[in-house]
């Protein structure tokens, strides 16, 4: 008799469980009502099953966001883990939507789920992509603007992972400043 040995497939666990959020801009509702928790994942395989299933960011309607945050952290300034923090912000031109937006967003996700920031990965809260007619934005959110060592390490590593040229400068803004910004724009607490 032939014995068939079936090897169970073991999924690869991630260091953290992550939540995917989706935001669709419906001006008739308060913004909180437009924010939806889509699903959670904590293995490499489940990440890909989700990523391959959902719409590419470049194909979302203007006014939509994706956000991927550690389980238990909501993608808003007010969350306890965000309110003292800030974000490394990547602003893209309209032309970059078709060329680089999806590639940058995937690389951002791979940095998150792969724990690409060494000991400072604990400072990571999540990442947001805003699809907007006036120019798309991608940002990595960290929990503490005062933890300069962590913020700078995350910024340098992130810039490298995106393959941004040295001459391109990215800025880190505290959420508290972004929340109270006047029309003039938000000052950068750090740049790399």
């Amino acid at each position: 008799k032939e014995i068939l040995i079936v090897q169970p497939y073991m999924k690869h666990p991630l260091q953290n469980r992550w939540t995917l959020w989706f935001y669709k801009n419906d001006k008739n509702k308060p913004w909180q009502a437009n924010l939806r928790l889509v699903t959670k994942f904590d293995t490499v395989e489940d990440f890909w099953a989700l990523y391959n299933h959902i719409q590419l960011a470049s194909r979302l309607m203007s006014g939509c966001d994706y956000a991927v945050f550690k389980d238990g952290i909501e993608p808003m300034w007010e969350d306890n883990r965000n309110k003292c923090g800030g974000r490394w912000l990547i602003t893209l031109s309209k032309q970059q939507r078709m060329l680089e937006l999806d590639q940058y967003w995937l690389e951002t996700l791979l940095c998150l789920i792969g724990e690409a920031f060494d000991d400072y990965s604990n400072d990571i809260c999540g990442a947001v992509i805003n699809v907007r007619a006036k120019g798309d934005k991608i940002a990595i959110w960290t929990c503490d603007t005062e933890n300069e060592e962590a913020v700078l390490h995350i910024g340098k590593t992130y810039k490298e992972r995106l393959g941004l040229p040295m001459k391109v400068v990215i800025g880190y803004q505290a959420h508290a400043d972004t929340a109270t910004k006047s029309g003039l724009g938000v000052k950068n607490k750090f740049v790399v």
Binding site: H12, Q15, V44, F47, N52, L110, G114, E115
Partner: peptide
Amino acid sequence: DKKKYDREFLLGFQFIFASM
């Protein structure tokens, strides 16, 4: 021990079930 995965390792799994 921290579960760290580099991008090449992660990318290797994108279509793993399709190839099974």
